[in-house]
Simulated scan of single mutants.
Amino acid sequence: MRERVRLTVVALGYALSMVPALVLAILSVVTIALGPLTVGLVFALAVVPATAGVTAGHRWVTGGLLGQRLTATYTDTSETTFLARPLRWLRDPARWRDFAFLWFSATGGFVLAVIPPGLLAAPITYLVWMIVDPRWLWFVLLLLSGPAVYVWWLVTPALVRARAVAERAILGGSRVAELQRRVERVTSSRSSALDHSAAEIRRIERDLHDGAQARIAAVGMSVGLAEKLVEQDPAAAVELLREARATTVSALEDLRAVVRDIHPPVLADRGLVGAVEALALTLPLPVTVSLVLDRPLPDPVESAAYFAIAECLANTIKHADATFARVSGSHDGELLRLVVGDDGKGGADIGGAGLTGVARRLAAFDGTLDVVSPAGGPTTATMEIPCRT
């Protein structure tokens, strides 16, 4: 019952949105007709952004109903002059889809949306009239409208979903366009991943050269000098060998640190869940870990997820002033979804170096990062990586 009432409220919102949709649809037609004139340009500067605002609200509601994210794919006009934008809008397929949506919302979409609240409102209306004006007519109408409640129960989910699917088809764009955007994102992310990999290789070379390599060279020099002193000054030779052993231990620590940055041993030994739990124990604030992974993940995905979580938690410690953090996630066989949140002060900058690195790491696997961090908190970072197992 509660779910159907919720869907009826959504349908009522859809139905009421017919009014601004119809107004904007008529104004859009007037704008197109007056296009060559200055008045048409002025109309466009008001009507098109208003239409985008209406469709943005519908994308949010419909995306929530269908469990999908519907994003607008408008042509970028940020570098276009104010008066030249309407000309760019005329060539933008996404703007024409918005125009088509306005007419759908004012016609067929309105019919689909008005039925559920209408079916539920009829018996309630007749009951109120019977109480206010107790005549036999209202009683008869109330009896006749009784089956409407049963019909409302049956058809509401299907009608609301039909409206939502239709909106997705109009506002979500074509499948070909979506595939083209994905190819562009993958191409860009692969290029960034290659640049990142080259930078990582240079960093590893530098760490090895400045750390382990220098220490191993020092060990060789100490052992060679000890070899010369072993007969003349055995005590000095023993001291040199002792220093060489200490230097060897330091070189091993440097090598372990380099390996840890490439692929943490705990990740190979205990998997992503165990590695994140071990990481949480080392942090200076309480971290709740709730990862549900029923099957092993590919090593590259596991490594990317681990370092992404580690970077998000590092940002929490450095910037959030939080008292606790949480890590949750699941894998449904197709998509790995991870959520890192805290109760800190919020205001996380998605363009900062840390989160930009996380986004770039995930993009190499066609993954996404979404950060919600209002001023005052809390902060929630949601990471999704396509991963079929």
Rank of each mutant, 00 (worst) to 15 (best):
Thr323Asn: 12
Pro300Leu: 06
Gly344Trp: 01
Arg242Cys: 10
Tyr306Ser: 01
Ser222Glu: 15
Val259Asn: 12
Ala278Asn: 04
Arg245Ile: 14
Thr288Arg: 15
Leu293Cys: 03
Leu336Thr: 01
Arg295Asp: 10
Ala235Ser: 13
Gly329Trp: 01
Thr282Cys: 08
Ser222Asp: 14
Ile317Ser: 05
Leu283Cys: 05
Ala325Asp: 04
Pro286Phe: 10
Arg326Lys: 13
Asp321Ala: 15
Gly224Trp: 08
Ile350Asn: 08
Leu291Tyr: 02
Gly351Asn: 11
Val292Leu: 11
Glu253Ala: 12
Pro286Thr: 09
Val249Ser: 13
Phe324Tyr: 13
Thr282Lys: 13
Val238Lys: 15
Val287Gly: 00
Val230Trp: 04
Arg245Pro: 05
Gln232Ile: 14
Phe324Gln: 14
Asp261Lys: 04
Gly274Arg: 01
Gly224Lys: 09
Val339Leu: 13
Arg337Glu: 15
Pro264Thr: 07
Leu225Val: 15
Pro296Val: 02
Pro264Gln: 09
Leu229Gln: 08
Phe324Cys: 11
Glu302Trp: 03
Ala244Thr: 06
Asp343Arg: 11
Met221Trp: 11
Asp349Trp: 04
Tyr306Phe: 15
Leu229Ser: 04
Gly352Asp: 06
Val276Asp: 01
Val301Arg: 00
Pro286Cys: 11
Pro264Leu: 12
Ala226Glu: 01
Asp254Lys: 10
Phe324Ser: 14
Ala275Met: 07
Ala235Ile: 12
Thr316Trp: 03
Leu240Ile: 05
Asp342His: 01
Ala278Thr: 09
Asp261Ser: 11
Leu281Ser: 14
Ile262Cys: 11
Ala310Pro: 09
Gly352Phe: 03
Ala310Ser: 14
Lys318Thr: 12
Pro265Trp: 07
Pro296Leu: 06
Pro284Trp: 03
Gly271Leu: 05
Phe307Ser: 08
Phe307Cys: 02
Asp299Tyr: 09
Val340Lys: 00
Val339Gln: 07
Leu285Cys: 04
Leu267Cys: 04
Asp332Met: 00
Glu253Gln: 13
Arg242His: 13
Pro300Thr: 08
Gly274Glu: 03
Glu277Asp: 11
Leu335Val: 14
Pro300Gly: 05
Ala310Cys: 09
Ser290Arg: 15
Pro296Trp: 05
Gly351Tyr: 04
Lys318Leu: 15
Gly224Ala: 15
His319Met: 07
Ala305Gly: 04
Pro265Cys: 08
Leu313Tyr: 00
Thr323Leu: 10
Ser303Asn: 12
Val230Ile: 12
Ala257Ile: 06
Arg295Asn: 09
Ala322Trp: 00
Ile309Trp: 01
Ala236Leu: 08
Ala325Lys: 01
Pro298Glu: 02
Ala244Phe: 06
Val238Asn: 10
Asp261Pro: 01
Ala304Glu: 03
Leu272Thr: 02
Ala278Lys: 00
Pro296Arg: 07
Ala246His: 14
Val276Pro: 03
Ser250Trp: 08
Gly224Arg: 09
Glu302Ser: 15
Pro234Leu: 01
Ala305Ile: 04
Gly352Lys: 10
Ala304Asp: 07
Pro300Asp: 10
Ala244His: 01
Phe324Thr: 14
Ala304Val: 12
Val292Gly: 07
Leu240Glu: 01
Gly220Thr: 12
Glu302Asn: 07
Lys318Gly: 08
Gly352Cys: 08
Ile262Ser: 11
Gly351Phe: 03
Asn315Lys: 12
Glu243Cys: 05
Pro286Trp: 10
Val223Ala: 09
Ala304Phe: 00
Lys228Val: 13
Glu277Pro: 00
Gly220Arg: 13
Ala314His: 13
Leu293Val: 05
Glu311Arg: 15
Met221Tyr: 14
Leu241Thr: 06
Gly351Ile: 07
Ser328Thr: 12
